[in-house]
């Protein structure tokens, strides 16, 4: 089924469409959430919250405002970040390290040996530190250009083009 059709049905609270979309994006969302909370049980909890929230707010989504993936990615990032700000989380995760997603990729034991995962590992290994940082902030953390340029101490235009070049490399690796 076309993505547009699925999304349209999902907006009309079609449970099957919802499940299909869940299956399409669950791994991606899990990756984003885990990268922020760094705990499987908490990530699981946030995952549930994200999709429940998506279901309840299905009618508010509009393709004019952005991609469906982008919409659910925003919900996931915000939910995960909210979680890290909760008192209970701060207590248990005093020493939450500030590693980038690449550290997870390099140390993860559960990462399967699918072609995609291997390809991404290779790509990540070759990535310059600047690429890792930009991708981490823009996609995993949801930083705006301005926030990223401040964080990385870079001109705003450089962030945009660097990000473009980094994603180009990623695409060559995972899509071709």
């Amino acid at each position: 089924m076309q993505l547009e059709t699925l999304v349209e049905k999902f907006k009309q609270k079609d449970e099957k469409a919802f499940e299909s979309l869940y299956n399409m994006y669950r791994d991606s969302m899990q990756g984003v959430i885990y990268n922020i909370v760094r705990d499987n049980d908490i990530a699981e909890e946030v995952m549930q919250d994200v999709f429940i929230k998506a279901w309840h707010n299905a009618s508010t989504y509009s393709s004019q405002k952005g991609r469906f993936f982008t919409w659910i990615l925003n919900i996931a990032r915000n939910a995960a970040i909210d979680k890290t700000r909760s008192k209970a989380f701060k207590k248990s995760k005093q020493n939450l390290d500030s590693d980038f997603f690449v550290d997870i990729l390099e140390t993860s034991e559960s990462l399967d040996n699918s072609t995609d995962a291997i390809g991404i590992k290779k790509f990540v290994g070759k990535l310059a530190e600047k690429c890792k940082a930009v991708i981490e902030l823009i996609y995993f953390k949801g930083y705006t250009q301005l926030e990223a340029s401040k964080k990385l101490d870079m001109p705003i235009g450089t962030i945009k083009t660097r990000n473009r070049n980094c994603i180009k490399e990623l695409r060559n690796l995972v899509l071709n």
Binding site: R26, D27, Q30, N35, D112, Y139, V174
Partner: peptide, 28 residues
């Protein structure tokens, strides 16, 4: 846009810990 999205979906999914044994969707 579709190509960019697709590559990002793959990249983020590769970070997933793939918690096996837990049926998240059932819980949802």
């Amino acid at each position: 846009v579709l190509d960019i999205e697709s590559s990002i979906v793959k990249l983020t999914a590769s970070v997933s810990q793939k918690t096996s044994g837990v049926d998240t969707f059932q819980a949802i």
